[in-house]
């Protein structure tokens, strides 16, 4: 009798988790309290250290494709058809010398190669060999103004409802020695599915930070007025802006 009562109460307590959690999760104060852990973790842990670098034979030859579909619109497919010859990376905002860069110009800049693990927020991991322009070097080329706080990456893909993908890093994260504007994956130019011609690679942060199909880099003092105001497409859906690994 007691055992049956115990089992019945245990089962109902278990099944109550989801509905009670849902109700609490819809409360703004609860969400604010829960979100305070992000600020605490950012403050205590921050962006320090280096992501581990791997050897050639650790690389996943078929690197997993995830996230939004490769941009289907003609603006992008034309670029692919013309081998990205008309592509220009726009760098503007709180910089001394706003500039545009062709793919050839980016390829002529000093390059860096890293074999690092990509950790998706979903929980899977893959290892790739990435080459490209260190982001810090590009920021030096354009020169940051004193009011520069964040680097915002605007992408050519959207979620199907017209919301463009974007991401942001603070200046400290953008100057991290492994933050890379990747042009190549696994010894070949980036293919369209992996973010061609230019994507971000930030191995010390979760995968959604490493934005693909970058068209424009804007240096800003605050991202509060951009899209949902949380500093990135997924951040606007409730994911953490501080996404360290």
């Amino acid at each position: 009798m007691r055992r049956r009562l115990f089992l019945a109460s245990a089962a109902s307590a278990l099944a109550g988790c989801g509905p009670i959690g849902s109700a609490l999760n819809n409360n703004d104060s609860v969400r604010r309290i829960l979100a305070s852990a992000e600020g605490l973790n950012h403050f205590l842990i921050g962006t320090r250290g280096l992501a581990r670098e791997y050897r050639d034979n650790d690389v996943d030859r078929h690197f997993r494709v995830n996230g939004f579909a490769t941009p289907p619109d003609t603006r992008y497919t034309d670029l692919v058809a013309r081998n990205f010859a008309p592509y220009r990376l726009i760098v503007e905002g709180a910089v001394e010398r706003p500039q545009t860069f062709s793919l050839a110009q980016l390829q002529r800049m000093p390059q860096q190669t890293q074999i690092t693990r990509h950790d998706c927020v979903e929980g899977w991991s893959a290892i790739g060999k990435w080459s490209g322009v260190p982001l810090g070097g590009l920021l030096d080329t354009v020169g940051l103004r004193n009011d520069a706080r964040y680097v915002v990456f605007r992408c050519m893909d959207n979620d199907g409802s017209g919301n463009l993908y974007y991401e942001s890093l603070d200046i400290h994260q953008a100057r991290h020695p492994q933050a890379l504007l990747a042009l190549r994956l696994n010894d070949a130019p980036l293919d369209p599915d992996h973010g061609a011609p230019v994507r971000l690679r930030v191995p010390t942060q979760l995968g959604y930070k490493s934005a693909k199909w970058i068209g424009q880099i804007e240096v800003v003092g605050s991202f509060a007025t951009i899209a949902g105001g949380h500093g990135g497409y997924w951040e606007d859906q409730g994911y953490e802006w501080y996404a360290g690994i």
Partner: peptide, 25 residues
């Protein structure tokens, strides 16, 4: 895992992470 035993009680990874990272402290 079925929704009645996950928090919140429907698919929402972003919220699940926030609950988890707060209560781990």
């Amino acid at each position: 895992f079925p929704a009645p035993i996950i928090i919140p009680g429907y698919q929402d990874l972003a919220a699940g992470r926030r609950w988890h990272l707060f209560f781990s402290w």
